[in-house]
Design a protein around this nucleic acid. Structure first.
Lengths: 155, 155
DNA sequence: TATTGTTATACTCTATAACTATA
DNA sequence: TATAGTTATAGAGTATAACAATA
């Protein structure tokens, strides 16, 4: 099974791992973020941070835990992320009377302005990420990823 | 465009971002790694670490930089990763006479044993990652990701 | 001058567990 | 007892820039 030779070209062979979903997803994600990051940096957006603001914008008053689960952010990290955005004046925390354990998140006026002013740049990027794929392939890829992650299913 | 209501269910709406390749790739990767990590942890494998050993195993004597580029590992981080594996006695560095700037990586006997003993467990996991997809969909997804990342193209 | 890799620093994210307070 | 979130700590990964050695 072992490649019994010394690599003499620049081509790196990944054997069975080259067919692995986990491996390919990691590579693809890093690649998508490379484009993403380059562009977003210019307009002062960090992917993770903006995605969180985006989620709160579209789900005002949603429970912190639900947003964290959707974005696959761990509770401990979520606390820090939210805290940072509260400090920046972009987000407010509210403790609802009906369940005083939970925290509901809403954007401040500044937070809304932050999102709306960067919305177009953000969406432009997320839609033009796939230079190497045809429109049709990109759509199929997105649909399969949605299925895989359950983002289109009820939770 | 804004959702003008207070979220009253646990469902989190991502609007246009829910169609974004970057967003979905991140979610998918975290999800794939959750399964992956749970299982691999039991047999003492870290995904990134094992993937690097796997790449060296299949490309003995390959230049460090080429492997790093394939795995999308940054040079600075690669130096540390390789150093750790050299310290563990799994990898050896060689400076070739024809280009004394470069480093060629090879597994030691211990490194080869490490990979071969965990090979089946690793491949079992990478092939059974996709519970939520049909075999056909999983195959399509893998092919599209390969196309997107250029893993099947020459470099 | 350009390339290969190293060092150093700071930051982001993850993993884990112990903890508070509420239910 | 279970759930929602917090705090604290350690580690993994990334970004960046300055650097040495070699081509």
């Amino acid at each position: 099974m072992r490649d019994e030779h010394i690599s003499d070209t620049d081509r790196v062979e990944m054997a069975e791992a080259g067919e692995s979903l986990g491996f390919l997803l990691r590579i693809a994600q890093v690649q998508a973020f490379a484009n993403f990051h380059d562009q977003l940096g210019k307009i002062g957006i960090k992917p993770g941070e903006f995605t969180l603001l985006w989620a709160i914008y579209h789900n005002p008053g949603q429970k912190q835990g639900n947003i964290a689960r959707t974005l696959r952010i761990k509770p401990a990290h979520m606390t820090k992320l939210v805290g940072r955005q509260v400090d920046q004046g972009l987000v407010t925390r509210d403790i609802p009377a009906d369940d005083r354990r939970s925290v509901r998140l809403t954007l401040t006026k500044e937070g809304e302005d932050y999102v709306t002013s960067r919305r177009d740049a953000f969406l432009d990027l997320t839609s033009t990420e796939s230079d190497t794929l045809s429109t049709e392939d990109a759509r199929t890829l997105v649909e399969l990823l949605k299925k895989f992650t359950g983002q289109n299913a009820c939770r």
